[in-house]
Design a protein around this nucleic acid. Structure first.
Length: 239
DNA sequence: AACTTGACCAACCGCCAACAC
DNA sequence: TGTGTTGGCGGTTGGTCAAGT
């Protein structure tokens, strides 16, 4: 599963790390701390480049790393953070204790990305027309008074009730935020339409749909109730 | 049994920003 | 201010394994 060890023309070893190398690197970092990576190979007696040592430490030897299967909670959080930050794996990994950016990135590319794409594809083909119409209304809504817009527009829909707490909001309610929230709304509506995103059932909760409430007003959304909710909200807002 | 294919993931590569001098 | 160094980040590669043919 790992690259075969080779030594390049400069005498620098590449490829899979041996147990002995891991031991030397661990001993060095425990003694001197994770710094001066350029000096690490010489001081630790390793034929590796400093960069490789750093990577090995951060992704494999560092204490507290979690290995193995991801929980549904972790998957849900990764999905949500990816929506917010895109491929900023270090930011995403920072919210997942024990997971590295490399690991999260691999997990996304190997598992989650496919799920997202397949769900997005199935939902977009079925509701493309409705989405376009909805987007056009949203655009029109931008031009209206902000307060009124906030009080009338639809609630944010979460993919799963597992993760209400993970959405955040900047203090300012400027234009950028409005866009972000609108995009968020539409994306979530798309994804949540047919089924729960990961495994959890969702329930629409009208009491939480005040979009710009102090806690960022997370609405929770039900596939069972969505058909009627969607149309109901849509008509209320734009009908 | 032999071969092919795809999934998985550790490791590498190249770029960039921050910092020191 | 310019240049070199360092650490950090995201994208990509390559080797192994398991499932399928």
């Amino acid at each position: 599963m790992v690259r075969a060890p080779v030594v390049d023309k400069d005498g620098v070893k590449r490829g899979a790390w041996s147990l002995e190398e891991d031991g030397k690197l661990r001993a060095y970092v425990e003694k001197y701390g994770p710094c001066k990576w350029r000096e690490v190979p010489r001081l630790a007696g390793l034929m590796r480049c400093g960069k490789s040592c750093r990577l090995r430490w951060l992704n494999y030897l560092r204490p507290g790393l979690k290995r193995g299967n991801y929980t549904n909670e972790e998957n849900d959080l990764i999905y949500k953070l990816h929506q917010k930050h895109g491929n900023r794996w270090s930011r995403i990994a920072a919210k997942l204790p024990g997971r590295t950016d490399n690991e999260v990135k691999n997990h996304w590319n190997a598992h989650l990305k496919k799920q997202v794409e397949s769900k997005a594809e199935s939902s977009s083909s079925k509701h493309e027309g409705k989405q376009k119409e909805l987007r056009s209304h949203v655009y029109e809504a931008k031009t209206e008074d902000f307060t009124e817009y906030c009080s009338t527009t639809f609630g944010i829909v979460e993919s799963s009730c597992l993760s209400q707490q993970t959405s955040s909001c900047d203090d300012n309610f400027g234009t950028e935020l409005i866009w972000e929230v609108e995009d968020y709304n539409i994306n979530q509506l798309q994804i949540g339409y047919y089924e729960d995103f990961w495994t959890e059932p969702c329930v629409w909760d009208h009491s939480q749909t005040n979009v710009f409430s102090e806690d960022y007003g997370i609405g929770i959304f039900s596939p069972q109730q969505y058909e009627t909710t969607y149309d109901h909200n849509y008509c209320d807002l734009f009908g």
